[in-house]
């Protein structure tokens, strides 16, 4: 039995709106094992992003949280940026457009690991190499707009892992990118968490993408957990009709064509 990093017990998140309370997440029980790659699958409105924000304790201030998140795998309550790294969907808006790449990547390392300026830049350089940015020395002095969408997402990943977090949360990190770049980013994330022994929570709407690398899958719908389990089991024997419909809706080269050959 592997040890647990986090335990979600009856976790609910709600937003007060015009007289009534809208639940974004309802009574979620979920364990996250140390070192696993967990995929959170859901469509829009499923609460998957809310779950990611709650795990990283970066929910907006008006959100109300009930239930608990325990962290048996950490000695203390997690610090965002230090113990939990976060990769957002759109690297165009998560990176600061007027700050040099080197300083942005070094920032987390300097703040949380107490590195000095030059040590921070050295760490940034090695991180940019790890996320395979071409010519990392030059990239340190560059600005976000000089990079393509896929490279920006690599830089955002370098920022997220700068302080050696135990948990890396990636919220739809590839849905703004094309498929070739998506495959590269997924391979990169997968490799990084293996090498560093990090835990990965990967939020996506694409069950096929998740099935390629996740150890476990948790399916969400309308703010509730539908089912969770080992990837192989969920895909082979989905217990819930909704999971079956998601699997059926996946389109790959085995899907039936809708046209007759011309």
């Amino acid at each position: 039995m592997t040890s647990l990093l986090a335990e979600l017990r009856g976790l609910s998140v709600s937003y007060p709106t015009a007289g009534r309370t809208a639940f974004a997440l309802r009574e979620v029980h979920l364990d996250i094992a140390m070192g696993e790659r967990l995929a959170i699958i859901g469509e829009s409105g499923s609460g998957k992003t809310t779950l990611a924000l709650a795990l990283a304790s970066i929910l907006p201030p008006q959100a109300r949280l009930a239930g608990r998140i325990d962290w048996p795998g950490l000695a203390r309550a997690p610090v965002a940026g230090r113990d939990v790294g976060f990769v957002f969907q759109d690297p165009g808006s998560s990176l600061n457009p007027v700050m040099r790449i080197g300083e942005q990547v070094a920032e987390g390392a300097r703040r949380h690991l107490g590195l000095g300026r030059s040590a921070g830049l050295e760490r940034a350089l090695s991180l940019l190499q790890r996320v395979r940015i071409p010519d990392p020395e030059a990239a340190l002095r560059g600005y976000p707009h000089q990079f393509s969408g896929g490279q920006r997402q690599r830089i955002a990943i370098a920022c997220a892992i700068a302080a050696r977090p135990r948990l890396l949360i990636a919220d739809e990190p590839t849905s703004a990118l094309d498929m070739v770049v998506q495959a590269e980013i997924v391979r990169l994330l997968d490799g990084l968490v293996r090498e560093e022994g990090m835990t990965l929570v990967f939020i996506t709407h694409d069950i096929g993408l998740a099935s390629g690398f996740a150890d476990r899958i948790a399916v969400f719908r309308d703010g509730a957990l539908v089912e969770a389990g080992a990837t192989r089991e969920i895909l082979a024997k989905p217990a819930q009709a909704y999971t079956r419909s998601l699997i059926a809706a996946h389109i790959d080269f085995a899907s039936p064509r809708l046209i007759e050959p011309a």
């Binding site: 498929m179 096929g208 099935s211 390629g212 082979a236 699997i247 790959d252 085995a254």
Partner: peptide, 12 residues
């Protein structure tokens, strides 16, 4: 080739 290889397939 890259586009075809990038398509996520269901791993059952």
């Amino acid at each position: 080739r890259a586009l075809v290889a990038a398509v996520p397939r269901l791993h059952r």
